[in-house]
């Protein structure tokens, strides 16, 4: 069973994240870059399926040169090989362009049975790429899963929502996305870390994938960010001394905020 895992390098959620002044895209220099945590779970799920069903796990990432570190992390966990789509033209791509590029990259991998993605990246948080990708590839999409099982050529999944749990089924090949409840990702082992460097990573450009540069990047995006302002700093808040009437003062405040 050949699996493709889509991974993304994102700014560490613990560091301060901001947009550049120039074109309001992500300021990659201002924060530590890490493999998105949800992708660690996607890789873990792929490795567990591989352990049960055999086959090969290929990691695909789209991102600048330094995304290599995120790819290596996935390889050190145990994935077999990787494709890194790196091209200046991709700067500022929207979800449609991203899905288009990933679809073409997936097309270069032979006999793909399953594509696994995280449900949404912690930076963009659009959560749309897996679904668009499935449409472009003409594959069934089984998204937002907390559990995945493969039986023969069928994939079964559990999607948890506020209303309850949906039990889904599709035939392979398919595209799935997983939520943070799917598993606990393994640590890369010492040997895994040392071996990651020797695993094959092919770096390709949009031209290599047969895509015109004008279709992607900022200029190819369907929407544009015209203005961005940093979140205003938190104000000091209102201090209430409790002189026996603290309760009613809190109630007054909440009424004033139209909360009660």
């Amino acid at each position: 069973m050949n699996i493709v895992v889509l991974v993304k390098q994102v700014p560490d959620t613990w560091s301060e994240r901001k947009l550049t002044d120039a074109d309001h895209t992500l300021d990659r220099e201002s924060a530590d870059a890490v493999l998105d945590e949800i992708n660690e779970r996607a890789v873990e799920e792929a490795l567990q399926l591989q352990e049960a069903h055999g086959g090969e796990v290929t990691v695909i990432a789209m991102g600048p040169d330094r995304a290599t570190d995120a790819i290596r992390k996935a390889l050190s966990m145990g994935a077999d090989k990787a494709i890194h789509v790196s091209d200046e033209a991709l700067h500022g791509s929207d979800v449609l362009a991203t899905a288009k590029v990933l679809a073409k990259a997936i097309g270069t991998v032979e006999n793909v049975d399953l594509v696994i993605a995280g449900n949404e990246a912690t930076d963009g948080r659009a959560g749309a790429v897996p679904a668009i990708l499935a449409e472009l590839l003409g594959l069934p999409q089984v998204t937002q899963l907390r559990k995945v099982t493969v039986e023969g050529t069928t994939i079964k999944g559990e999607r948890e929502t506020d209303e309850g749990v949906a039990f889904l089924e599709a035939s392979l090949p398919a595209v799935v996305s997983v939520t943070e409840k799917i598993n606990e990702p393994r640590y890369p082992s010492f040997k895994g870390i040392m071996a990651a460097k020797k695993k094959p990573v092919s770096t390709v450009t949009v031209a290599d994938l047969g895509i015109d540069a004008s279709e992607v990047g900022l200029s190819g995006a369907y929407t544009q960010v015209l203005e961005a302002a940093p979140k205003p700093p938190r104000s000091a808040g209102q201090r209430v001394e409790d002189g026996g009437d603290g309760g009613s003062k809190i109630a007054e405040f909440l009424v004033g905020q139209k909360l009660i």
Binding site: R72, Y187, P188, F190
Partner: peptide, 15 residues
């Protein structure tokens, strides 16, 4: 080195 950094992180997480 990439490996050294990752190994440090691994030991940190493990600890």
């Amino acid at each position: 080195l990439y490996e050294r950094k990752e190994f440090r992180q691994l030991v940190k997480d493990f600890t």
